[in-house]
Simulated scan of single mutants.
Amino acid sequence: MRNNNEIRHGRHCFFLMHVHLVFVTKYRRGVFTKEVIDDLREVFKSVCTDFEAELVEFDGEDDHVHLLVNYPPKVSVSILVNSLKGVSSRMIRKKNYPSVQRKLWGGALWSPSYFAGSCGGAPIAVIRQYIEQQQTPH
C-alpha cells in the first residue's frame, strides 16, 4: 500500500480525496463477529478496487463499521456507498453466518442511512486563509 498522503492523478487532474464512512446494521442489531468483520474487509477492498479507490483503513464493532476510503473525483460518494453496502450485504448473507441469520431477517444487512465525512488535507480555516491572501489583480 502506498503512502496515504500521496497525491494521485488522472488524465487532467491531481487529487487527494478521502471520505470517512460509517455503516450501521439494520435495527442496530449486534451481528458482527471477528470473522464477519474480516470478510467485510475483503469485500470492501474488492469493491474499492473496482472504483479505482483504496480502502485505507477499516474496522468495526458488533453493530457498525468505519471505513476510510481514498477515492478519485470521478466517483460519486453515494454510488460508492451503494455498491459497498449492496455487495457486502449479498456476500455476508450468502455465507449464512449464524449471528446474522439469527438477528436479521429479510434481505437487509445495513440500515438505509449512513455517515459520510470528508477528511484529510489542511483544515478549512487554513484553506480559507490561503484563499483570502491571494493577490487579486487591480
Rank of each mutant, 00 (worst) to 15 (best):
S88C: 05
L40H: 03
K26P: 00
M91P: 00
V31F: 05
E42V: 01
C48V: 06
C48P: 03
D39S: 04
K45Y: 02
G60T: 05
Y27W: 09
F44Y: 15
D38E: 14
L80W: 02
L55F: 11
V36M: 03
R93I: 13
I79E: 15
V87D: 07
K85Y: 02
Y71I: 10
H64S: 06
L40S: 06
C48L: 09
D50M: 03
G30T: 15
R29N: 08
E42A: 05
F44Q: 05
D38R: 15
V24E: 05
K26R: 14
I37T: 04
V47G: 00
D39A: 03
H64D: 01
E35V: 06
V31K: 02
V43C: 12
E54F: 08
I92M: 07
D39F: 01
V75I: 15
S89G: 09
L40N: 01
G86V: 12
G30V: 04
V47C: 01
S88D: 11
E54H: 13
Y27I: 02
D62M: 01
L84T: 00
V56A: 08
T49R: 15
G60C: 08
G60N: 04
L40R: 01
L80G: 04
A53Y: 04
E52H: 14
M91Q: 13
I37K: 13
S46F: 11
R93E: 03
V36D: 02
K34V: 02
P73K: 15
R93A: 01
Y71N: 10
I79C: 07
V24Y: 01
S46C: 09
L40M: 15
E54Q: 09
R28H: 03
F44P: 01
